[in-house]
């Protein structure tokens, strides 16, 4: 979309990241906290892709060319997706294991290491 300024995409990304951060601090349900982390990751993905499309960083002399920086943003998004998938598989496994062990998944009650 040519008619949309870069700042519009970045603002949406910033907003999503902020909401995700609020969720991580505020919520006590580990699954929702997990979802908020996903939200933050996706906000970053959106930022990567909008920078890739608008390749604002390519102007620097000696830096990567426009084509290279466009691809670099997308590659980062691919890797973020893969890492998020692995993280969810393991994280949800951990949540299930904790639930099986303690019959509760309240994040505030998980204070075994406090001593």
């Amino acid at each position: 979309m040519i008619g949309v300024p870069l700042v519009a995409y970045l603002s949406l990304g910033l907003f999503m990241f902020t909401v995700g951060a609020v969720g991580v601090i505020v919520r006590r349900n580990p699954i929702v906290i997990f979802m908020c982390i996903e939200l933050m990751l996706n906000a970053v993905n959106l930022t990567f892709l909008s920078f890739a499309r608008y390749h604002a960083v390519a102007a620097r002399p000696g830096g990567p060319s426009a084509a290279e920086s466009m691809m670099a943003g997308q590659m980062m998004v691919i890797f973020v997706m893969a890492v998020a998938a692995a993280e969810v598989a393991v994280g949800l496994g951990i949540i299930m294991a904790i639930f099986r062990l303690r019959d509760s998944i309240d994040i505030d009650e998980m204070s075994l290491l406090r001593g």
Binding site: P5, L6, V7, T18, V19, I25, Y54, A56
Partner: peptide, 27 residues
Amino acid sequence: GIVLALVFAGLIAGQILPSLMSASRPV
């Protein structure tokens, strides 16, 4: 949490976004 996040958002919106206003159109 809400206050902390708002401070964070305000910092980024105030410091980073204005400098990118010029690069607002895709090449």
